[in-house]
Design a protein around this nucleic acid. Sequence first.
RNA 1: GCCGCUGUAGCUCAGUUGGUUAGAGCGCUUGAUUGUGGAUCAAGAGGUCGUAUGUUCGAUUCAUACCAGCGGUACCA
Length: 498
Amino acid sequence: MGKNKKLPRPKARLPKGLRDIDAEEIRARDGMLRTIRHVYDSYGFEPLDTPAFEYTDALGKFLPDQDRPNEGVFSFQDEDEQWLSLRYDLTAPLARYVAENYERLPKPFRRYQSGPVWRNEKPGPGRFREFIQFDADTVGASSVAADAEMCMLAADALEALGIERGDYVIKINNRKVLDGVLGSIGVDSDGDDYLSKRLTILRALDKYDRLGGEGVKLLLGEGRKDESGDFTKGAGLSSEQIEPLMAFVVAQGNGRSETLSTIEELVRGNEVGQQGIDELKTIDALLSASEFATDRVVIDPSIVRGLDYYTGPVFEAELTFEVKDEKGRPVRFGSVGGGGRYDGLVARFKGQPVPATGFSVGVSRLYTALSTLGKLEETAPFGPVVVSVFDKANLADYQKLLAQLRAAGIRAEVYLGNGKMGQQFKYADQRRSPCVVIQGPDEKEKGEVQIKDLIEGAKAAASVASNEEWRSERPAQFAVPEEKLVEAVREVIARHET
RNA sequence: GCCGCUGUAGCUCAGUUGGUUAGAGCGCUUGAUUGUGGAUCAAGAGGUCGUAUGUUCGAUUCAUACCAGCGGUACCA
């Protein structure tokens, strides 16, 4: 780098994994959030906001150590040297909130919450280090009716967002069933390396949708080498152990009850597994009673979800259609939401068990999917009406016109730049203004204003060849008396709406 | 973390079998038009060819390392 005497300039750059959000996306996203909120509200949940960061130990992370000070989370120290971390989901702060306010909250406590969360991980396609989640949780209800409700909530929310039935599916599984299958093949808490082995197995099963049966088999056995040459160590199971696991993963049948009877066989005799099956059966019955059929909610034994805190039913929302990207390659949108039962989270604070279950919509990812699909409603097709500045000495006149428009509820601004008339129109064009208001000396004298319909004018431009013609014709421009300004602007806007 | 691909103007990309002043289109600025968007025409701004080291008389070009981006994979409460 050069050593000249100029002040070193910072480089204008965005940290990786972060994004700027433009007006169009903000509008669309606000609409999505409103829609989801409406559904959650109708289910009886109450809003809650918590801060962006918390004490690190309250979030459930170990204190950052020297080796990996920021593993997974963004952390920093307060002035009293206590560690703080940006929240990485909305569930951990909820657990803290419930534990801290337990006595005065109604039980069960039902809340929804949306906002950004941060993860210090390698960003990938569709994965960012800051993204928005929208959660609903019921804390203090051990009944699986609460879990069944989460599935209904998820399905209703996706449909309210305009995703048609059949274009999404809510998948359910149960951690207890998974543990039951593990128990029946001899992987249980008696084994010395039980925890790490269970983890490896669950991770392997979780990849079924991506790697397929062969890949998962390798990961359960000796390990797998991927196409880039990287080797992943396997769980080291014998083929007698792998077989029932594979049978379990592919057990999804034609309808929820068929799936259930298949996996019931696989956990036969295992108490925890049977308990999980019974829970799924109850959920199935509740869903069926509410007419949530298998075109909306299925039981999928290959669903695992995060590994740490889920203790019972787990859910995942997936979009099922395929879309092609700019290069014509098919893009699959994976999970756009998920959740499950976490009976141990609040107990971390309180000692006593507090059952809880919840569902989280990945708003950012859903936005990407919907916008790729073109399923987002066009919002704000117009920019503001621009009152042009013919002469800065007469700004007060323009301000008066502007005030009339604003008082009438019309989005409007006076041109605040330095440009000449031509530049002002260019500006208005860029802003997608429906029209420009012009008042030069001639108009002023006659008590008139010129209104230039930019949208009509753009159409007219196609048939105008020469510049002289373009200028002399002044396409789609007309004069009205000053007092008719609002009326005329309304007409122009109305003409182009819908 | 591991593997692979890519790095030339704001964007999309040419190009140099190693040679003096590195190009195009689009975009941007200004003007033709002293009161009018588009189209057209003209002019202009904008690059230490990702960074460093090495080979060489000479490197944007070759080699190595690093960095960044992308993709895959691993991890992901």
